[in-house]
Design a protein around this nucleic acid. Structure first.
Length: 682
DNA sequence: TTACCTCGAGCTCA
DNA sequence: CTCGAGGTAA
């Protein structure tokens, strides 16, 4: 094979630059300057040269958007700056309150806002190192998302490299992936022709496309990207002073942004923009579910900081929830884990807010009475984005004579036990306890759940069958299951049965905290279970404690203590625990020893985490602190003993300084905990 | 709450 | 081919 000459290298480079430029003109500006045929010719020429000189192929070449090999799994990606969500406003009054609060905070009476549509797609983060796209990831929980670089690379409006001579060392661009309305219609037509399933709405189609393991499928979907912010920029820029400067900067980097982006003044500006966008909505090329307001001045943004998971300097003003009318076919009564009877509306399927709604909770008896709902009524159903569907009201004019009233049953619909509603409460409860199959099923499901005993493969359908066939009655019975009992069930042939048995066996070795949580004691969630395990250390001790003793434990008050005592007063519960231990469920009860060894500087102290630590994930830092006897809480107060701050800390950092609380970085934390990093925790 | 993807495995029919 | 479980997203 011929060695590439200098001329060839240059020709390839110039072809790439030209093609990227036309890509930009076509996909971002929507103003192609050359005919498609000419573009194709350039593209083929580049492909041909790259074929001839494979050693010159680079990842940022426009020919390399679709990587050859499908993945086998997704990998996690940790965001350097967390991807936060926004607080929502639905009413003009909320927007005004937002503005008032900010004015007070930054002591001014007129705030300049940068405003833009709120895209209805999927938030992603794009990482550019030395100007090259290296990683693209989903939002995930805000701190850690999924690495979907292979799929994001197929999106033509995302630059593979930045058009700069001297690109920043590190840049994280935040934006949204969507499918344009027209492309969505086309995609569904295409799906229909192929006899494949139709997508319910454009957001689900975009989400589905991004979750493909094989990027060649993603490449066939016309996905679009719009940028709306920057996560990290290194080195920092001195010229970016306002959010609108950031947007201009993004444009200069050839990122598409919403044309409808504007700068407005004060609350009147915000609401005028809202009205305007509402009028524009139909005409837009993409789906939106509201507008976003951000304080334009970046130093004001920093000053305002964050509240828990959302910035205080921005808010999403959502469009009114979509509503539709449908018939209430019936009201089922569901039994929850604690025996609560919840009325659930069974609705004639209705398409509203992008999905088909068939159920909606009616909360409780009073709610139904208040709204005067009768079975057979036509009702207004409302749904907004991620908000749970709701029956707003009935349509009285459409009421027929055949409607029937709903009454809360006096007996549990599942087990027939008495259902009682205590005076002053709105909730009706089944008194059957674990005699009630519905409660038993959910108790077992909870026991097996990931955060409790983590028995993989024991899902709802299997538990249904096991309880219905009276194969098991309590969680303890799980450990007495044999292959014979299992394999008589539907969808439980040899392989599945042995997998489940293996998972059950595997779960026998657990921790005290998990075990306590798994019992499903009322008011004892994961955190309380951990506290109990840490402070009490032994199951037997826990079972003997009275209300007063329990309240000595941090964060346990009279209600929780009472609930724990009640649980263990029940002979049945003691019996189940005994059986679980007999069948081999075990954990380390050496907590006392551990506690003795704990550093008193850490033992029982409250830690607050903020910012991103270099090596530890938030989860890992939390576990580490807890293992050393400390507690991790979310909000900072005078009771906080230490604040652990990483890169880009939020407002908690400033508060810590204000309150004079010691601030630790990761190294100082390790020193305090006297632990060594063995390897970065993934 | 609904919808989507993926995987393993069971079921069905030729 | 279909189902259930598990995970993700809004």
């Amino acid at each position: 094979m011929a060695r590439p000459s200098e001329a060839i290298t240059q020709q390839i480079e110039s072809l790439r630059t030209t093609i990227e430029l036309h890509n930009y003109r076509y996909y971002v500006l929507n103003e192609p300057t050359i005919p498609d045929a000419e573009y194709d010719r350039l593209f083929r020429k580049l492909q041909q040269l790259e074929q001839q000189y494979p050693e010159l192929v680079t990842l940022d070449s426009p020919t390399q958007r679709v990587g050859a090999t499908p993945l086998t799994e997704f990998f996690q990606f940790k965001h350097r700056t967390p991807m936060l969500s926004l607080n929502n406003a639905f009413e003009a009054t909320e927007v005004e309150a937002f503005d008032r609060r900010l004015c007070e905070e930054i002591a001014t009476h007129a705030i300049e806002y940068s405003v833009e549509p709120k895209f209805d797609g999927l938030a992603v983060s794009l990482v550019y190192e030395q100007g090259l796209l290296t990683v693209g990831a989903t939002r995930g929980d805000g701190h850690t998302g999924e690495n979907i670089t292979h799929n994001l690379r197929t999106i033509q409006s995302i630059p593979l490299r930045l058009p700069l001579e001297n690109p920043p060392v590190y840049l994280e661009v935040r934006g949204e992936v969507m499918i344009l309305k027209a492309d969505f219609i086309q995609l569904n037509q295409h799906q229909e022709k192929k006899g494949e399933k139709l997508f319910a709405n454009s957001r689900n189609a975009a989400a589905g496309s991004l979750r493909q393991l094989d990027p060649s499928i993603t490449a066939q979907r016309r996905l679009t990207f719009f940028a709306y912010g920057i996560g990290v920029l290194e080195p920092p820029s001195g010229t970016l002073k306002r959010h609108s400067d950031v947007m201009t900067y993004l444009v200069s980097l050839h990122f598409p942004i919403a044309k409808e982006h504007q700068i407005v003044q004060g609350p009147v500006g915000l609401l005028t923009y809202y009205q305007w966008m509402m009028e524009q909505r139909e005409r837009l090329l993409y789906d939106i579910d509201g507008v976003v307001y951000k304080v334009n001045n970046l130093s004001d943004q920093i000053r305002l900081g964050f509240v828990s998971r959302a910035p205080r300097f921005a808010i999403a003003h959502k469009f009114p929830a979509q509503e539709a009318v449908t018939q209430l076919l019936g009201i089922d009564v569901q039994v929850g884990r604690t025996g609560t009877l919840t009325p659930v509306a069974r609705l004639a399927p209705i398409f509203v807010g992008g999905v088909t709604v068939t159920n909606a909770t009616l909360h409780n008896e009073d709610e139904i009475k208040r709204k005067q709902i009768m079975i057979g009524d036509f009702v207004i159903v409302r749904r907004a984005g991620d908000v749970i569907p709701e029956v707003v009201a009935i349509v009285p004019e459409q009421r027929s004579v055949n409607v029937t009233a709903f009454t809360m049953p006096d007996y549990c619909p599942v087990c027939g036990s008495h259902a009682v509603r205590l005076t002053g409460e709105t909730i009706t409860r089944c008194t059957g306890g674990l005699f009630c199959p519905a409660q038993r099923k959910q108790a077992i499901l909870h026991f097996a759940s990931r955060r409790a005993m983590n028995i993989e493969g024991l899902g709802e359908k299997l538990v249904d069958q096991l309880v219905d066939h009276a194969i098991i009655r309590t969680p303890a019975d799980l450990y007495k299951l044999g292959i014979a009992a299992l394999s008589q069930l539907a969808r439980m042939a040899e392989k599945s049965a042995s997998n489940v048995l293996y998972a059950i066996e595997h779960s026998k070795h657990t921790t005290l905290a998990r075990f306590i949580y798994a019992l499903g004691i009322r008011h004892v969630g994961e955190t309380t279970a951990k506290d109990l395990a840490r402070y009490i250390g032994q199951m037997d001790r826990l079972m003997m404690m009275n209300v007063e003793q329990l309240q000595q434990v941090h964060d346990i008050g009279p209600i929780v203590a009472e609930s724990i005592v009640d649980f263990f007063a029940e002979p049945h519960n003691r019996e189940v625990i005994e059986q679980l231990r007999v069948t081999g469920v075990h954990w380390d009860e050496s907590q006392e020893v551990l506690e003795y060894m704990l550093n008193p500087e850490v033992q029982g102290k409250a830690f607050v985490l903020t910012g991103t630590l270099p090596n530890l994930t938030r989860e890992a830092a939390k576990t580490l602190i807890e293992q050393s006897g400390g507690k991790v809480t979310n909000s900072i107060s005078t009771k906080t003993h230490y604040v652990v701050a990483g890169a880009d800390p939020g407002s908690k950092y400033h508060k810590a300084v204000e309150l004079g609380i010691p601030v630790l970085d990761e190294t100082a934390l390790f020193d305090l905990l006297e632990t060594q990093i063995i390897k970065p925790v993934s």
